[in-house]
Structure formats: structure tokens, C-alpha cells
């Protein structure tokens, strides 16, 4: 295999990193604002959930978990949809940013989806009488969505050609996204096979202070997703840079070998060395 080489590795040299203490994170003014906003919204939503809002006429105190579970359950789609958009951009335009966004969206989405399932299970035990119900279509399709994206993340860790791997991952992401409308419509299509109620939010069936607490829940989870997505995207970007530096290093190594005729890594000529 032969490729033209590119002499400018982006690795921060030890001297550069030593003199750049301020540049050792994925934080920026944007993420600082998002982080502070997120922290404030957490405090507000906890106050609204536990002190400002009223118990529900049917559910009583259990409704207080609604303000966390429902925003998580609805907004978990956002990182997955960003993953889908990124995947389309990669498949269509070979966009590197799209691929990185897809990777970031899948990971943040899996965290949100897992938390949706866990908080839902904790709510389900006293409300429905069980942590889990295999016949509830919404529950099971949400679990499948989570598992599909866990598979997506595992696929991205399989060593191999990055472009082929990104292409395979993008296709898996787009197939997995078919599950989202299924989850959303399951309470309508299988009404007698789901313990979940029909859309409370969409039909405006929550009012006053409880609606305000729900709104705060959505703001809190939304800011959290924005904060996590931004950091995760930057991590994906940094990982790509590190990979590139590794490749550039290897090329520089081979170039040195080609110039001297000696396998620099083991100190012998290729004729003497054979396989490493």
C-alpha cells in the first residue's frame, strides 16, 4: 500500500502541553454557560418536584417522578435523531463532522435511554405493580432502541478501516431509528397491550404548577443534553486527532526507515528482521 505522506503531525509535544495548562479540557464559554444553566435548572426542578407542585389526584406523591422520567423519555430522541442526521451527512457527503456527531449522539442517547428505563421501572413498581412488563410494547421497544445503540457503540469499537466502520455504523443507526416512531405510536396502536397512558403532554392534560414543574424538567434535561452532546462531540473530535497523529507518527517512522534502510523500531534491516 502506498500513500502520499503529509508532514505535520498535530500531536501536542510535551513542551507544548507543559506550557498550555489552560488548554486541557473540552470546556469553552458555551459549555460553561450550558453547565451553569443546567446546574441551576436541576435545583429549580427538584424544588418544583418536591416542594412547589401538588400531589396528583390519582397518583399522589408518585407524580413527583414524572418531572424527571417524562422529559428523559421524550428528549432521549434528540441525541438519537442527531445521530441519524450525522449518519445521513456521513453517508451522503462523507462529512467527518457528521460521523463525529453520530457517535456523540449515540452515546448520549444510550445514557438518556437507560435512565428513562431505570426511572420508569422505579416509577412502575408502585404505580403499575411491577418494575417491568414484557407485554408492554412501549417498554420493550424502548429497551430494543437502547440495545440497538449499545450495539452501534460496540460496532464502532471493532478495529478496522475507519471509513468502512463509520459507514456500517451509519447504516445501523438509520435502521435503529425506525424504532422511534414505533415507540411513539405504540400507546395508540396497542392500547390494550400497554400500561403506558396516551400522550399526557401532547393533549395538554397536565395543568398549573404541575405543568410548570414539567416544563422545568424539560428545560433541565434539554440543557443537560446540550451540555453532554457538546463535550462528547469534542471528545470524538479529539479522539480523531489522536488517531491521525498516530498515523502521522507511523508514516514518519517509515519515512525514517526508508531513508536509512533500517527498521528503526527493532534496529535491524528488513532483510534481517522478517515479521515483527
Amino acid at each position: 500500500m502506498t500513500v502520499p505522506t503529509n508532514p505535520s503531525p498535530d500531536l501536542a509535544t510535551p513542551s507544548a502541553t507543559a506550557s498550555a495548562p489552560l488548554l486541557t479540557s473540552t470546556s469553552s464559554r458555551l459549555t460553561q454557560v450550558l453547565g451553569i444553566g443546567w446546574a441551576i435548572s436541576v435545583v429549580l426542578v427538584v424544588c418544583a418536584a418536591f416542594w412547589w407542585s401538588e400531589p396528583d389526584a390519582t397518583q399522589g406523591e408518585l407524580v413527583r417522578l414524572f418531572y424527571l422520567h417524562v422529559p428523559l423519555a421524550i428528549l432521549e430522541y434528540v441525541p438519537f435523531l442527531l445521530c441519524g442526521i450525522g449518519s445521513v451527512l456521513f453517508l451522503w457527503k462523507r462529512s467527518e463532522w457528521g460521523d463525529l456527531m453520530a457517535h456523540a449522539g449515540a452515546e448520549v442517547g444510550v445514557v438518556m435511554c437507560a435512565l428513562t428505563l431505570v426511572t420508569g421501572a422505579v416509577w412502575g413498581r408502585p404505580t403499575w405493580g411491577t418494575y417491568w412488563d414484557w407485554s408492554d410494547v412501549r417498554l420493550v421497544t424502548t429497551l430494543i432502541l437502547c440495545l440497538l445503540f449499545v450495539g452501534y457503540l460496540a460496532l464502532r469499537r471493532v478495529p478496522g478501516d475507519p471509513t468502512t466502520r463509520a459507514k456500517q455504523a451509519a447504516i445501523v443507526a438509520l435502521v435503529a431509528l425506525i424504532d422511534i416512531p414505533l415507540i411513539n405510536r405504540s400507546v395508540e396502536w396497542w392500547e390494550n397491550r400497554t400500561l403506558h397512558q396516551k400522550g399526557t403532554i401532547a393533549q395538554g392534560k397536565i395543568e398549573d404548577i404541575n405543568a410548570f414543574a414539567t416544563l422545568l424538567g424539560f428545560i433541565m434535561v434539554g440543557l443537560g443534553i446540550a451540555f453532554l452532546m457538546t463535550h462528547r462531540f469534542r471528545i470524538a473530535w479529539l479522539e480523531r486527532q489522536v488517531d491521525r497523529v498516530g498515523l502521522d507518527d507511523a508514516i514518519a517512522h517509515r519515512r525514517a526507515e526508508a531513508a536509512t534502510g533500517v527498521d528503526a523500531s527493532v534496529g535491524r534491516t528488513p532483510e534481517e528482521g522478517g515479521q515483527q
Partner: peptide
């Protein structure tokens, strides 16, 4: 439910920040 939800989100956020800090030392 609240304790599990918020602590998991917080732990993930801190893990991301730590990972970002470690990686950004390796990149110019």
C-alpha cells in the same frame, strides 16, 4: 428515582469532562 437519575447524569458528565481533559493534553 431522582437520586439514581441525577447521580447517573452527574457521573456521566464528570466522566466526560475527565476524558476530555485527558485527551486534550494529547492534541495541539
Amino acid at each position: 428515582g431522582w437520586v439514581i437519575g441525577l447521580s447517573a447524569l452527574g457521573a456521566y458528565a464528570f466522566a466526560l469532562l475527565a476524558r476530555g481533559r485527558r485527551l486534550s493534553r494529547l492534541v495541539a
